[in-house]
Write a protein that binds this DNA or RNA. Structure first.
Lengths: 224, 224
DNA sequence: TCGTACACTGTACGACGTACGGTGTACGAG
DNA sequence: CTCGTACACCGTACGTCGTACAGTGTACGA
């Protein structure tokens, strides 16, 4: 048995850029982006820290690659349906993916050059809009608008300190409301109370705004 | 002249939480959030690194305080106009502020508890919407929708690798287009070409989506 | 049999956040 | 006028970070 094969047994498989990046994503999902260090990542892979630099030029490039894998996970707009359904599907998918990799959102601000999966995604979305009858310029507007909504929603969702409706109710009643004097924040109190009563569901909230935007974009199609 | 007065001359004024946080923001604006270290910040203030810990519990709290100062800079919705104008003003202000502190957007994802300025802002926005005739629930929807758009737009804008229209044209023609094979990315090519021809202005782009959202929200008012 | 190339790693450096234990000065009490 | 205390500030040190650099061992073609 060669040393390479030994290593493969010891660490589940030989190293590769793919394996490094995938494990990095797992680590970031588990511990947050601050918990992702080259040493820890190497440890997870059963390797020395410097070995990683044979597959990734530096940590920045590793982060770029991680982001692009995230984009790969987002569904492309299906081609066989009307444009609104297609956009809704890909937006919903994007929200799900970003919610399961919250660190990705904070990373986008600092990373300026889009990866290949990102480009493929943009191309597919633009294609869908153009084929639906939007002009080049209105398609650009629609693109900015939809992406802004999706990213902004994911950003807000990521900064919520709870994940489930129960946690929300608990946190609101025990932490937030006591911090909000009703005379200074009457409307926030009212709104928090209503949300506790009505229940809290980010997926529903997301769909509401999304459908409102899609409906408002409909009249901009040239061939309507 | 006392030692304290000497210090004040040497470093422009005695230390204070306010001064520490403001200088931290200046440093982050200038060098990015990665360039902000306790040692460098202390250096800018003419102090030792550990002195900062008398005004800030740790770096996390410093970042929280920075974010809240940023929220303080955003205009509250004016009370004397119709709700759409009020929302437009505060949204435009928010975009400007976030564009001048791009690091703030990436920070929001990891920071979960809102500061006082943030709360005041939310209260004022919610008040404006409720007074305009939105119900508690539709006001919540509108809030999520508008904030998502503003934050998401700011996030996308921050991740653009250029600041001016000229830079945009240059980068597009010299860097992006050569990377986009026309047969693989026909629509992105078309759209890039159109943008170069029509000129690029993020402020206009922002207003487009904003007004579209505001118009779409109008019919949701109860007292319309 | 040997040379080369490749995959990998050990060590070391400078910078980071911050715990801990000072140090000097201002100031109220005696 | 003296002195105790409180406060503002800092020097040093520890563990961790990213990563430059200089190896080391093995596979493989000649």
């Amino acid at each position: 048995m060669s040393a390479r094969e030994q290593r493969q047994v010891a660490s589940d498989a030989g190293l590769s850029k793919q394996r490094v990046v995938v494990e990095a994503i797992r680590l970031a999902d588990r511990e947050g982006v601050d918990g992702l260090s080259m040493r820890r990542l190497a440890g997870e892979l059963g390797a020395g820290a410097m070995s990683l630099y044979h597959y990734v030029a530096n940590k920045e490039q590793l982060l770029d690659a991680m982001i692009d894998i995230v984009f790969e996970e987002i569904e492309l707009p299906p081609e066989e349906t009307d444009w609104q359904s297609a956009m809704r599907r890909r937006a919903v998918s994007a929200r799900q993916v970003l919610a399961s990799h919250p660190w990705a959102i904070g990373l986008m601000e600092s990373r300026t050059s889009p990866g290949p999966a990102n480009l493929r995604h943009r191309e597919a979305v633009t294609a869908c809009l153009r084929r639906a009858g939007f002009t080049v310029l209105t398609a650009t507007h629609a693109n900015w608008l939809l992406d802004s909504y999706v990213y902004g929603f994911a950003l807000q969702e990521a900064s919520l300190p709870f994940d489930t409706a129960d946690e929300f109710t608990g946190m609101t009643e025990e932490v937030f409301l006591p911090q909000l004097p009703p005379d200074e924040f009457p409307y926030l109190n009212e709104s928090a109370a209503a949300l506790v009563a009505a229940g809290y569901d980010p997926a529903e909230e997301f769909i509401f705004g999304l459908d409102l935007i899609l409906a408002a974009l409909e009249p901009l199609r040239a061939s309507a």
